[in-house]
Simulated assay, not measured.
Amino acid sequence: MQDALSPILVTGGAGYVGAHLVRHLRSRNCDVVVVDDLSNGRRPRLPDDVPVYETCIGRVDEITRILRKHRCRTVVHLAASKSVAESVRDPLVHYRNNLSNSVALLEACTAADIRQFLFASSAAVYGDVPGGIVTEDANPLPKSPYGISKKMFEDVLQSSVEHYGMTYAILRLFNVAGRGAFMAHEDIAGSEPSLLDALAACRVRAGNTDKIEFQILGNDYDTEDGTCERDLIHIDDVTEAFWRSLLHIAETGKNLVVNCGSGTSRSVKQIVHRFRDRHAPSITPVYAPRRNGDIAKICADISAFKHATGWEPVHSELDKILVSISEPS
């Protein structure tokens, strides 16, 4: 089945998720090509023999040439602006990068006769969901321009690619976390650190001090302890989820739209306190105002993904994730 998928072009392949995925795909004997503008990605994360093109996915002719040169059969689209807070401050940047440039990428894929297309979408497409547990058929009501931009490209993809003989998978990623087996000592933080990136950085800064404050953004949400609740999924489970999804669409010819989370939610307060108690006793949690665009509570129902592909998370226990980020970079 690798022959039906490979070579695979990964956009954003020098980023945190992308670099893990590239190595995972190579472990599955796939040839991989990377396109990344390196605004957040880092070339040293990738093996030296992986072809990397430092360019924008919005350049249709150039991306078409790359796809044809390497005779790619599959595209995995990870490249995106990913900051909820930044999308609230400057929405048009997210609409350009996540929608306009993604449509341009899709044009290049049709010109190069790509057969499979996997899109890394986001749980942000859902917004606040009653009860917090969300299935794929929930009515999407994104709260931020980031979430809106992801949903808009989902709609473009679903309404157009079948006209060009392409099958697609859309994975709505929840909170990807941890360091994987391939990058155990790599600095994984992006342009705007996630909760766990910030915790890891705080632990490093706290090395020579008795106490250091760590801000929890908001403690007045309608949740059990007042802080946001999140579904954390280990990066190694995510890369395997991508692989299973690619196999599914190649083998069945059927499209796939699924949640990719652990199926368990934890509050920010729980996560911070667990990390402090086990890995960074000098951290002192303090509360700060909410961040615009944040969802109060969300947790993936992953039963549809399990049923379709047999995938299930096996690395996403909270303690395992926290151990992985507490290791030195």
Rank of each mutant, 00 (worst) to 15 (best):
L196W: 01
E192R: 11
F214D: 01
D222V: 10
I216P: 10
E224M: 09
K211W: 14
H185P: 10
I216G: 02
L217P: 10
R205A: 08
V176M: 03
N208R: 08
D236Q: 12
G178T: 08
A198W: 00
D197F: 05
E192L: 06
R230M: 03
G218M: 08
E192V: 13
K211M: 08
G178N: 03
T223R: 13
G190H: 08
A184D: 11
E192S: 12
D220A: 04
A206P: 10
Y221T: 03
L232Y: 13
D197C: 09
G218Q: 05
E224P: 05
G207E: 07
D231C: 04
L232A: 10
N175P: 03
E229D: 07
F214A: 04
E224L: 15
M183N: 14
T223K: 09
P193W: 12
L195S: 07
N175K: 10
Q215I: 12
A200P: 01
G180N: 14
G190K: 11
F214P: 06
F214C: 05
Y221W: 11
A184T: 15
I235F: 08
D231H: 02
L232G: 05
E229A: 07
G207M: 04
T223D: 04
R205F: 11
T227A: 00
H185E: 15
L232D: 03
M183A: 13
L232P: 00
F174N: 01
K211N: 11
Y221I: 00
E229G: 09
K211I: 06
M183K: 13
G207A: 14
H185S: 15
L196A: 10
D222G: 14
D187T: 11
D210N: 08
V204L: 08
A198P: 00
I235R: 00
T209G: 02
L217V: 14
H234R: 06
T227N: 04
F174R: 01
L199G: 03
L195H: 02
A201C: 09
G178A: 09
D236W: 12
N175T: 14
D220W: 06
R230T: 07
A200I: 00
G218N: 07
F214H: 02
N208L: 04
S191D: 14
F182S: 04
C202Y: 00
G178Q: 05
S194Y: 05
E192Q: 15
N208F: 02
G190S: 09
G178C: 04
M183E: 13
R205Q: 13
G178E: 01
A184E: 13
Y221Q: 10
